[in-house]
């Protein structure tokens, strides 16, 4: 299908039939097309409906009464099959072609081709807890309720949950994935502008669901580097509250500190990166990043817990 994608792209030219770029761009393009077409179809169909309803109102006395339905007759069709099929075929063509078009985008979104010369995507593990988000960086450090990512760099999110079913989503960056206990899901994002965004939980997870948000900070690459280097050093970053556990994760950290240069293969599946992430995952999966950090995490969130019952 990727070849088909390329083929279609070649035919249509650089105008790009299939939108590519950040998820926000892709989403906007498709959404706009759907909105315009959907509105048009809706307006046409409903206008036609209203028009016919008005035109054939009883008081207008259209048509003859010769062949009206009679009580007790066996049902039979009312004819008009050709028109029915014509409209049906038309609608089927519109829907099928629209969806096929978005399918090409899906292929892109599911496996974005690596931007040439771009560095290794940053992999962040997102762990849902009732009711806060934990972000584990490749160096094994974790931050709660604040995701810091560099601009213009693909960020791969590996999403899971420690307790119930959550869903992690950053609406403005159009990244979203289910956070399922015992499962990992993948998504990615590409932030093109620095700034502060909000992440939400999109699956009902308990009394704290409404307030299970996290801040997403998109910073310049250099800022990110200095922040990343300083993680674990508590004075370097006041938002990264829990940095004192990098001792256990040192191995993983050193493995990721020197990312292997990416070849033409899709960046997200670079062996070094994926194996390192797996290492981090296996380490983190059975228990929170560090056993000592876990209770500390839960203590502040307990104040946001509203267990009262009507």
């Amino acid at each position: 299908m990727v070849t088909l994608d390329t083929f279609v792209g070649a035919v249509v030219g650089p105008a790009q039939l299939v939108p590519e770029g950040s998820r926000a761009v892709v989403f906007r393009r498709i959404y706009e097309v759907f909105l315009v077409l959907g509105t048009a179809v809706g307006v046409i169909v409903i206008a036609y409906m209203l028009w016919k309803a008005w035109k054939y109102r009883a008081s207008a006395d259209h048509g003859d009464d010769a062949d009206r339905p009679q009580l007790g007759e066996l049902p039979s069709g009312g004819g008009g099959g050709r028109k029915l099929f014509l409209s049906f075929s038309l609608s089927a063509i519109v829907v099928v072609s629209l969806i096929s078009w978005t399918y090409l985008t899906l292929l892109y979104v599911e496996n974005p081709e690596p931007v040439q010369d771009e560095e290794e995507p940053l992999t962040v593990r997102v762990v849902g807890h009732s009711f806060f988000w934990e972000f584990v960086y490749p160096n094994g450090e974790s931050v709660n309720d604040q995701l810091v990512v560099p601009e213009d760099r693909h960020v791969r999110l590996v999403v899971t949950s420690e307790d119930v079913f959550h869903n992690f989503g950053i609406p403005e960056l159009r990244a979203k994935s289910d956070a399922i206990p015992g499962q990992e899901t993948n998504t990615w994002l590409l932030a093109e502008e620095t700034g502060t965004y909000q992440a939400n939980c999109y699956e009902l997870c308990g009394p704290g669901h409404s307030h299970m948000t996290a801040t997403v900070q998109v910073v310049s690459q250099s800022e990110f580097q200095s922040w990343y280097q300083g993680m674990g050093n508590e004075s370097a970053n006041d938002t990264a509250a829990a940095m004192d556990e990098n001792v256990t994760a040192n191995d993983t950290a050193s493995a990721l500190a020197t990312p292997t240069p990416t070849g033409p293969s899709p960046a997200l599946t670079t062996p070094a990166a994926s194996s390192a992430t797996t290492a981090a995952s296996t380490q983190a999966l059975p228990a929170p990043p560090t056993p000592t950090a876990a209770p500390a995490r839960h203590a502040p969130t307990a104040t946001r817990h509203h267990p009262e019952v009507i």
Partner: peptide
Amino acid sequence: LLLFILGGITGVFLGAVVLDYEFRGT
């Protein structure tokens, strides 16, 4: 029927997986 048509059209949006990703849970 009119309302169902609107529901149907907005349902096609959800059928496009890329859009569904973003509409999920909203």
